[in-house]
Amino acid sequence: MELALGGDPRTDVLRRLHAALIARFGQIERQHEKRVDPVWTLVQGVIGARSKTAISNAATDRLLQRFGTWEAVATAHVETLTDELRTQTFPAQSAERLKACLQAIMAERGEVDLRHLSNLPTEDAMAWLERLPGVARKISAGIMNTSRFQRRAIVIDSHHRRIVQRMGLVPPKADTTRAYDALMPILPDEWSAADIDEHHLLVKKLGQTLCRPSEMLCADCPARPDCATGRASLEH
């Protein structure tokens, strides 16, 4: 993926935003452990619609503990998977999508394994993932960035997209894919995959606390100096 050389002023906005969020919330490091497995990240994403991250993490661990292998999860009955995923917001839908996704991988690869993606450019690997049932840009970016692949790919969830739209960094009606395509070329060149992951987690925290969907606490927001919406709200 070709990145800009840093001349876009939005790149400096991202640098300032990152520093301001660290000053407010502190640095965030993702605890990897076994969750560096790309398949674990895939499963967590597929079952995670509208569910809290901690709940989806626990459900993913529980699936592997119960069935032992992802191949066994792929061949389990949907009703059994639904029961195992009862803590998810949409357990039946999560079970159906997960089974279809894992079976699609098995049909092409012979097992539930994503190691072949390490040989592909990031864009090609994400395109392969997005052909799987239940996998869109947020999940494909998460797999490439937060697993052992450690690629430069930014995760865009609803919190992140809302904030960058309000700041004016991406078009106001951009979906996740368009927001990703707008942000990737302006990420600071010096940011590693871990830096990009931390940036996402910090922006997500901002969206969960000060820049919520129906409530914007602009007067107390560390992003306000660079936020078009924040500045406008305080002018009225």
Results as ranks from 00 to 15, higher is better:
Met1Val: 04
Leu3Ile: 12
Leu3Phe: 14
Gly7Lys: 15
Asp8Ile: 12
Pro9Leu: 02
Asp12Ile: 11
Arg16Gly: 01
Ala20Gln: 07
Ile22Cys: 02
Ala23Lys: 03
Ala23Val: 01
Glu29Thr: 13
Gln31Val: 06
Pro38Ile: 02
Trp40Leu: 08
Ile47Leu: 12
Ile47Glu: 15
Thr53Tyr: 13
Glu71Gln: 12
Ala72Gly: 14
Thr80Val: 08
Thr80Ser: 10
Asp83Met: 03
Glu84Met: 13
Gln88Tyr: 06
Thr89Glu: 00
Thr89Asp: 00
Ala95Ile: 02
Glu96Pro: 05
Leu98Ile: 13
Ala100Asn: 08
Ala104Ile: 01
Met106Glu: 15
Arg109Thr: 15
Gly110Met: 06
Val112Asn: 10
Val112Glu: 14
Pro121Ser: 06
Glu123Lys: 15
Glu123Thr: 10
Asp124Ser: 11
Arg131His: 12
Val135Cys: 13
Arg137Gly: 11
Ile139Leu: 12
Ser140Gly: 12
Gly142Ser: 07
Gln150His: 11
Ile156Trp: 08
His160Pro: 06
Gly168Trp: 09
Gly168Glu: 11
Gly168Met: 09
Pro172Met: 05
Lys173Tyr: 10
Asp175Asn: 10
Thr177Glu: 14
Arg178Ser: 14
Ala179Arg: 02
Asp181Ser: 07
Met184Asp: 06
Leu187Lys: 11
Ala193His: 04
Asp195Gln: 09
Ile196Gly: 01
Leu206Asp: 00
Pro213Ser: 08
Glu215Gly: 00
Ala219Phe: 01
Asp220Asn: 08
Asp220Lys: 11
Cys221Asn: 07
Glu235Tyr: 05
